[in-house]
Amino acid sequence: MTTQTDPQSKLAAYSNPERLVSTQWLAEHLGADNLVVLESNEDVLLYDTGHIPGALKLDWHLDLNDQLSRDYVDGERFAQVMGERGIGRDTTVVIYGDKSNWWATYAMWVMSLFGHEDVRILDGGRAKWVAEGRDLTTDVPTDTPVDYPVIERDDRTIRAFKQDVLEHLGQPMVDVRSPGEFSGELLSIPDYPQEGAMRGGHIPGAKSVPWGRAANEDGTFKSREELEEIYLGEQGLQPSDDVVAYCRIGERSSHTWFVLTHLLGFERVRNYDGSWTEWGNSVGVPVER
């Protein structure tokens, strides 16, 4: 049985309203059949300090990244990660996390590389749930593992590699990093560790739209109208455009990928996960400052 969607009016205005749920909806649906809630954070221990009852931890680095090469897990490992969390191919998965859902949208993007159909984001993420004083627990559920099929990862549709970006130069591109990173003044996120890019600046032709502009103070997404004003009105992008988004390692640009794809209905948005840590270290690629 397909889990019903959240009928809240703010969500209904988005292109794919079924991709987002409110805290209220989630609170009412916790424990529903064939629904699994995942928490995905930057901090690997945050889940263990208390999480939404029934939620399971999905760590972007330990569970979704290959531990040897800079890439995502393969189909077999992905099947294992999903299966051991009780997720089947037709399970509704709701993901939430810290940092305005950076890692939640990143996890959704990776799940989308494997074509998992019903993945939703909790609007406002962990911070909103906590701010509303909703239940948290440190009990880790013991889910019965299920069989998840081994699916070949699709790297062509929503993922861009360096070569794809080189071929894309001159077409719409969104740099979602902070203004200081875009201008080349900073080599990493303000207040973050130096991630070792040899060059500062941005990919020629990229528009600077910091990811945070799509989010409200409480971590929820801005309304469709507000988002259209930014991406369509101010930046002149069109839903029919072929767009590449990037940041530093692909986490903040997953947030923008989600906004453009699922909230504004853009037809082709690719996340360049190599992002600045690849581009800013590559020999011979053009850089603009």
Binding site: D43, L45, L46
Partner: peptide, 9 residues
């Protein structure tokens, strides 16, 4: 910060 338990650890 308490929101950064790994770092606190």
């Amino acid at each position: 910060a308490p929101e950064a338990p790994t770092t606190r650890g």
